[in-house]
Design a protein around this nucleic acid. Structure first.
Lengths: 125, 125
DNA sequence: CAAGTGTACTATAACAGATAGTACACTATT
DNA sequence: AATAGTGTACTATCTGTTATAGTACACTTG
């Protein structure tokens, strides 16, 4: 379910956060679903429990999950909506990169093609 | 010419690299232009000369500039082309973000609008 | 020779990320 | 009550990266 890249520059706990959000966005993790416990996941991924705790704490801070001590940790009803709102914020990132592309003389069509390919729409070449 | 954000998560030397590439991409720095010396820039930005040396060394490794010991450091003829090629590689980044957007249910139009706004084209809303 | 350039080192400090280990509280199950 | 599995809260340590400080040397131009 999770896949850690230990050579990536992004910290492990951020990878956990990102992948969990993606799992929510794609509907694999739904309202009420239980997240793997810090101990279980630490064994599965060979990652320190504290690192996972750090990731889960952040997800909780964002309102994507709640903890039930002695019971487990579960996805909240608002999770999907919150992830969607967060994604909208990333449009600024796209805009920023696109500005650099423009400055470097990359045709706007190339950028748009990249976006559409991600959405599964092939270019009318 | 340069602007350092000391609170950013991206290291100073990377900021120097990025901004230099942008200056090349935008044509502000052209073939044969001299880069500010490590000592001058270190005073101007209040940054350690070693940090700037690190940034310049990387730019040199990428073939964007060459050093003439005792003389200065200058933009190469290939710099503009190399920066352009590097930007094309960032299309993968756009694609990656767009995939997450799609998974989160963000309409493709929103992403494309972000791109076009960066290129100065307003949306036909 | 003097001034300004690049280059190469060592050493140090600061911080973030990750690990190790321990301890305790809570809940469900038996 | 006992057990197992959960979350939580610490402290300590290790490591790598980033940045700084300081020194020294080589080269080129004027």
């Amino acid at each position: 379910m999770y896949q850690i890249d230990r050579f990536a520059r992004t910290p492990i706990y951020e990878q956990i956060i990102d992948q969990t959000q993606r799992l929510i966005a794609t509907g694999i993790l739904k309202d009420g679903d239980q997240l793997p416990s810090v101990r279980m996941l630490s064994l599965e991924l060979s990652v320190n429990p504290n690192t996972l705790q750090k990731a889960y704490a952040e997800l909780e801070r964002r309102g994507l999950c709640v903890s039930a001590p002695g019971n487990g940790r579960f996805i909240t009803p608002d999770a999907l909506r919150l992830v969607g709102e967060g994604m909208k914020g990333r449009l600024d990132e796209v805009r920023s990169i696109a500005e650099e592309m423009r400055a470097a003389g990359i045709p706007v069509e190339d950028v748009i093609d990249a976006v559409q390919s991600a959405y599964g729409k092939e270019t009318k070449s």
